[in-house]
Each structure stands twice: as C-alpha cells, then as structure tokens.
C-alpha cells in the first residue's frame, strides 16, 4: 500500500488509546509497543483483502499475546475491516471487540488467543497447514517476552524448526516488562537470540523495534530466507507504552492500567505533537 507509515502508526496509536480511554482501563503498554509492527504488517506486507477477511490463501497474523487485541482492532479498523466507531465498544458487554482476540467475533482476526503460549502453537499449526496446502501464504505471529516463559512456546519452536516451516515469521515484543515487574528480574528469558538460534530458527534482532522502517527491513530479510528451511524469529526491542511519555514512564505498571478519557486525550495530543 502507498501510505505514510509513520502517519498510520500515529493513527493506530491514537485509536488504541481512545478505545482504552473510553473504557478507563486496559492493556495499554503491550498494545502501544506493537503498533509499529501491526502497521507494517497490515499496511505494507500482508497479502490480505479487508473486504474478504477469510480469503483463501491470504497471509495470516496470529497475535499470540492476545492482550494486544485493542491495538490489533485499531489496526484492522484503520485498514478498513470495519468502521472505526466500533473501536469505542471495546470490552463493553456484548461487544465484538473483547480484550483478547476472538476469531469468531471480529472480522480479520485469524485465531482466538489469550491463554499465553497457545496462539504461537496455533500459528505453527497454520504454517504447517499452509505448507501442506502449498498455497504460498506467509504466517505471521507475535509473542511477548514474558510469554516466552511458557513451556508451550518452546515445544512449538522445536516443532516448527523440525518441520522446516520457512513460511512462518514470528516476532517477539521484547518490551522488557511483564505484570510482576521487569522480565529480567521475574524470570529472565535472555539470551533470546541464542535460544531461538539454538532451536534452529533464523534470528533477526531489531534494536529499534518501534521503527517501522527497521521492522520492514527485518521482514524483507525474513522473506528472503524463505526456501532456507528455517522459520524466522524477529526480536523487536521495543518500549512498553511506546509513543506516550507518561505511559512509558509507568514501566511494568502500564501492563493493564487505568486510563481516563482525559489521559487518553493528553496521550493523543502527545502522539499528534500538538
């Protein structure tokens, strides 16, 4: 798509903040840290059609860190899957936009996620399905650095490499925090690059994980890796709460934080630079 990707990121950030602000609470930190990835995937990389969300042979994105649902919804709305008004129904009773991604409720969601570790396995299963079908699709998936503590992640990692699923491009949102504190202090997952390489993956480490151009470059490198028989893990070194200084400053406390409508407006002003 021909677009100003930085402007797309700003729009998604603002819509994410406003949808959570309407509700007063939400997983704001881990949503804002992945906005740039979502923008690049849905606006520049994925073979998709918002008018045909279940199109055969489409590329798929499975957000294993399902709590980033609000950021995914804002991305889908900006991409034209549904009206932006719907974003303000986030988490309201009867909504089609629940806090964690639900494929049976939301157009454009490729897998129901939220129980950490499982979405990643599901993505590996989808990549296996695509490989068997030979439809040429790319399967993208996103996990959290805290989520990397789940044993199931490593079961799936081993399997994906063993089955040579080079149609699978995974991302880790390395924002450094989880609910109880810094990942390094709670139960350190480092060194992630070495771990993924040891599991037989092609690893790309992106120091500027919130730079859409760096992300795009990493995805292009991952795509060139296709045919090499290895799945790719892109480690995105991100900032939890990225783009809003008072949310960034909360650290671990921004995982699931209170956010008033006034706060949200303040955040939007900062994102817009006004």
């Amino acid at each position: 798509m021909d677009c100003d990707i930085k402007e797309v990121c700003r729009n998604i950030r603002c819509d994410t903040v406003m949808s959570i602000g309407r509700l007063g609470v939400g997983h704001i930190g881990g949503c804002l840290s992945v906005v740039d990835l979502l923008a690049v995937l849905y606006f520049e990389e994925m073979r998709i059609d918002p008018k045909q969300p279940r199109m055969a042979g489409r590329d798929r994105f499975i957000c294993s860190k399902g709590h980033a649902g609000p950021a995914v919804y804002a991305t889908l709305a900006n991409r034209g899957y549904f009206e932006k008004d719907l974003l303000l129904t986030l988490n309201a009773g009867g909504t089609n936009l629940p806090s964690h991604c639900d494929m049976n409720r939301t157009a454009g969601i490729d897998m129901t996620t939220g129980s950490l570790g499982q979405g990643f396995s599901c993505a590996v299963g989808a990549a296996l399905g695509s490989q068997v079908e030979g439809d040429g699709a790319t399967i993208y998936t996103l996990i959290g650095d805290g989520e990397s503590q789940e044993g199931q992640i490593w079961e799936a990692a081993m399997f994906a490499a063993a089955k040579k699923l080079d149609n699978l491009i995974a991302f880790t949102d390395c924002n450094g925090y989880q609910i109880d504190g810094a990942v390094a202090e709670v139960n350190d997952v480092a060194p992630l690059a070495d771990k993924w390489a040891a599991f037989g993956w092609h690893v790309i480490d992106v120091a500027e994980g919130n730079d859409p151009f760096a992300i795009k470059d990493a995805i292009e490198r991952a795509k060139r890796n296709r045919g090499g028989g290895k799945p790719t893990m892109v480690l995105l070194r991100t900032v939890k709460g990225c783009g809003v200084s008072f949310i960034e400053a909360m650290g671990a406390l921004n995982h699931n934080a209170a956010l008033s409508e006034e706060d949200a407006c303040r955040a939007v002003a900062e994102i817009r630079g006004v």
Binding site: G119, S121, G125
Partner: peptide, 12 residues
C-alpha cells in the same frame, strides 16, 4: 500441549 494447539491451527 503443542499437539492440541497445532491441531487447532490446522483446523483454522
């Protein structure tokens, strides 16, 4: 665990 979720991914 992987078996069960892989199957769900294949079902998708």
């Amino acid at each position: 665990q992987n078996m069960a979720s892989i199957a769900a991914g294949l079902a998708s």
